[in-house]
Nucleic acid binder design. Structure first.
Lengths: 135, 135
DNA sequence: CTGTATCCTCGGCGATACTG
DNA sequence: CAGTATCGCCGAGGATACAG
């Protein structure tokens, strides 16, 4: 076999049915790997946060999208929504154990991108330069 | 601090600028976390594959999307495109070292979803049942 | 403060047909 | 076999206004 050696058990567990078009993980994947899913989960790693806090912390997200993604992750049991019955309503979001376990994977992924940005950018420039120098 | 203990160094490396709206990783993230990005990378883990092989292996993808995503990942230096100058052209795609390193993260993520599907589905049912039983 | 409702735009994506 | 070209749909996502 070709490359298994370098992967240890990660490769061994590669779920073959992920490629099935009816794989039940597809909808969840779609949310988490959606534009904001990963960032929302990651933003909650340091600790619970309020709606406005998230809105401020995650650059470029709109209220609508934040609200929508939050509803999803709460529904999937990844995030817990806590409402404090004060006069100006205070809603706190925090990771559930399940969400925290997912967050580990996502943080690893974000870190990978962070660490490899130089390599990725270099590859793009090489590609663009070789392809169409005059375009 | 709240939860850092459980994360070891993964949390410590949480790149704060991932939340910046101008973070250069956003476009790459968008591709990789797009609908087909992760699956394409993951599909190449076991070994090199041809265009038609990928098309067959990844359930539900169209030629157009496969072609488009492949171009992206090649551009980012994650996948190598090898053309054999035979009469019916044979093009083989394989992971670069960079791509293989990313694949580890993605496989871990796919495995996580695979392993936690029961918990996710249970959470959904609990949520839907509590929310609107009569809808 | 924490959302929800509405409108609108843009581009992801699929289907189909065609080329080298 | 390995794509590219073209069309059209539909839903993600943003802006704004409004509600509890």
């Amino acid at each position: 076999m070709v490359a298994s050696e370098q992967f240890g058990d990660v490769f061994a567990q590669l779920p073959a049915d992920s490629f099935d078009k009816n794989c039940p993980t597809r909808p969840v994947m779609a949310q988490v790997t959606g534009r904001w899913g990963a960032l929302i989960i990651a933003a909650l790693v340091p600790g619970p946060m309020r709606f406005s806090g998230l809105h401020r912390h995650i650059g470029g997200i709109s209220q609508k999208m934040l609200s929508q993604y939050l509803k999803s992750v709460v529904r999937y049991g990844l995030v817990e929504r806590l409402v404090e019955p004060t006069v100006p309503p205070q809603v706190t979001y925090s990771l559930t154990p399940l969400g925290r376990s997912l967050a580990q994977q996502l943080c690893a992924l974000l870190s990978w991108f962070h660490a490899n940005t130089p390599a990725l950018e270099a590859a793009q420039q090489r590609y663009d330069a070789a392809d169409s120098p005059a375009r």
